Structure formats: C-alpha cells, structure tokens
Amino acid sequence: VLHSLHYFYTGSSGLTTFPEFVAVGMVDGVQMLHYDSVSKRAVAKQDWMERYTRDHPEVLERDNGNLQGAQQTFKAGVGILKQRFNQTGGAHMVQNMYGCEWDDEDGAIDGYDQYGYDGEDFLAWNMKTMTWVAPVPQAFSTKQRWNQDRADLQYNKNYQTKECVDWLKKYLAYGKSTLQRTERPRVSLLQRSPSSPVVCHATGFYPDRVVVFWRRDGQELHEQVDPGEVLPNHDGTFQVSVDLDLKAVPQEDWGRYECVVQLRGIEDISTPLDPALIRTNEGKSGLTIPIIIGVLVLLLAAAAIVGVILYKKRNASDKGHKPVASSDTSSENTEGQNPAPEAQPLTT
C-alpha cells in the first residue's frame, strides 16, 4: 500500500475573506493539521493526531513557531513575486506543496517539493538531479541561488527520503485504526434527466485509492466516459463519480454496460446499467443529485481555502512541516526529530 504525507502552504493577498496564510498537513489524504494567519495556532484535526500531540507537546509548539515564521515569509513572498511579474493590485497567491510517499510492501520512497504562483508552476525540486527547476523566467534568480547551496540540496534529499518517511510511519502507527482501515463504498447510478449522462457515484469508501470505471461487454470503456476526481467527505471517507454518455446508445443495449468499483481488500462491486436502478430528479429521489452537487460545491470551496487543489494535480505526499525561513540561507533546523524543518524563502 502506498502511503503519503503532504503539506500545503498558501500565502495570498487581495482576498478579503481569505486568510493571508493557510497551512494544511495530510496523511494518506486525510487532513490531520491546520494552521491559519487568523488563529496563529496549529490545530490537530484527527483524534489520533490529538493523542500524538498530547504525548509529544513539543511537536505542536515547534510547528507553531515554524508556521508563524512561514506566515511572514509567504506574505513577503507574495509582494516580491508581484514585483517580478510586474503586478500591482488584484488577488494573488503563492503556494508550496511538499512531502513524501512510502510503499509499505516494497519500501519504495519518493519525495517532492513544488512552488506555484497564481495557479501556475513556479519552482520544482528534481529528486533525481537534486536541483531546483524553474519553468518561468521570473524564478531563475531563486533557482540559481538555491542550487548554489549544496548543503541545503543535500538536506532536502535527506528530508524527503528519510525524515519525512520517519514522520509518516509515526503518524501511521498512531492513526492505524483510522488510516489503515478499509470501508466499503456505496454505489449509486444517478441521472439528472433522460438526456443527461448516467453517473456512477461511489461514496463512503476508505482509503481514497479506488478505481471506478464503466465497461461494455466486459471491456473497459475509454470513450463516452468522463471520470471525476476523488473528493473528501465530511466524515473522513471519500467519494468519486464517473459519467457515462449514452446519447448514441439505444436503451435496449443498456444491459451491455456496467459500472465497476475496485478497492483493495474487497471484491469488485459491479452495478449493471439497469433503468430500475437509476435514481433521477423525478419522484422521491428528486433531491439526490442536487444534494450531491451541493456537497461537491462545499468541498471544492473548502479545498480552495486550504490551497489543496489550486495549482497541482498530483496524488502524492509530503514532508513533516517545512515552513519557510526568513533568511536566504539553507535550513537551520536539521534535527531528525523535527517535523517542521524550515525552507528557503522565494525573496530576493
């Protein structure tokens, strides 16, 4: 099983209803830590994380200090990048996501560290070459400065391949009953109107590594389908939908189609495309789709607040915290037991 530890930082300006800095930590896609510039406190978001911080109170205090420093650095970073991009007013965002992945079967490890500005890639860490890569000219000066600091380059590699994984294993041990459970999905077929696609909606499953697809005569379909992204539910489980366009398919052929849901640890769930099984906007099932759409809107809004889906679509993990430092030097806090090492700023 592939496990992950992610951190997402978002610094912003020009958004009156949005905190100027938000940080979120996630283990296996489940949020376990939250910090924002309004509360100025790191808060455990899972029962197992609360137990961990009670047993190790110094960890949360260290996170608080580092994240408060990151808040100031990201605020300065937004201003600097506005200058580099010749911008004045308006809403702008700097984002950083970093972390690691660990496969508990073969021991494979991967790590990453990426920055974005206003929804576009700005800087990315290349694990193989141990260097920073700048996809835009405005990031060249930062890339050159960071690539000259050999000690910090080595530290980044050590953090992503060892320290981050060590923290991930600690969190997995504390949250074992929650993070390493398996919950069977509930599958429904939904349709807004007779001319709309039929939606195969799976919800309530855990972990998030589910595979949902349509097939015809036993063969997986790659056309006529529109897969959606896996989204979190309020209770820590997940949901996903895959649309099937049936405009060119006569109803007498519907019996050849079925939706298949695969989740490790359970048998495949196969749901035939039977009109009797489809819930629509007509009759007593009429509110089903609007409710789901409302939930998705709320989820997307929440995701926007924490900066999780704004500029990268990678299903990976992250480092134990790496709030940004206030100087141009390499990370000073390199102790292996620190879940929140500092990182370089984007400034100068």
Rank of each mutant, 00 (worst) to 15 (best):
H6P: 01
Y7I: 13
G14Q: 05
T17D: 15
F18Q: 06
V22M: 08
G25V: 03
V30D: 02
Y35N: 08
Y35G: 03
Y35R: 02
D36Q: 02
D36Y: 13
D36I: 05
V38S: 05
V38T: 14
K40C: 11
K40F: 06
K40T: 15
K45W: 00
K45F: 00
Y52F: 06
Y52A: 14
P57I: 11
L60K: 10
R62Q: 03
D63E: 09
N64R: 04
G65T: 14
G69V: 06
G69F: 12
A70K: 05
T73I: 07
T73W: 04
T73S: 12
K75P: 04
K75T: 13
K75S: 15
A76T: 12
I80V: 11
R84W: 09
T88W: 11
T88G: 07
G89N: 10
G89H: 02
H92I: 07
H92Q: 07
V94P: 03
V94A: 12
M97T: 03
E105C: 09
D110K: 15
G119H: 06
G119M: 09
E120S: 13
L123M: 12
A124R: 09
A124H: 04
K128N: 08
M130A: 14
A134N: 09
S141M: 12
W146C: 07
Y155M: 07
Q160N: 04
T161C: 06
D166V: 05
L172R: 07
L172G: 09
L172C: 08
S177A: 15
L179A: 07
T182G: 12
E183A: 15
E183Q: 14
E183H: 05
S193G: 12
S195F: 00
S196G: 03
V199S: 07
C200F: 10
A202D: 11
T203P: 00
F205V: 00
Y206A: 12
V211T: 10
E220I: 08
E220Y: 00
Q224V: 06
D226N: 06
V230G: 01
L231T: 02
P232V: 11
G236D: 07
G236H: 01
V240A: 02
S241K: 01
E252D: 04
C259P: 15
V261Q: 01
V261H: 00
V261F: 03
R264L: 08
I269H: 03
I278E: 04
T280S: 10
N281F: 01
K284N: 12
G286V: 01
L287E: 13
I289F: 01
P290Q: 11
P290K: 15
G294T: 02
I305N: 05
K312L: 09
K313Q: 15
K319D: 04
K319S: 05
K322Q: 10
K322A: 06
K322Y: 06
K322P: 01
P323V: 01
V324F: 05
D328C: 12
E332R: 04
Q337C: 06
Q337I: 15
E342A: 11
L346N: 06
T347H: 09
T347V: 14
T348P: 00
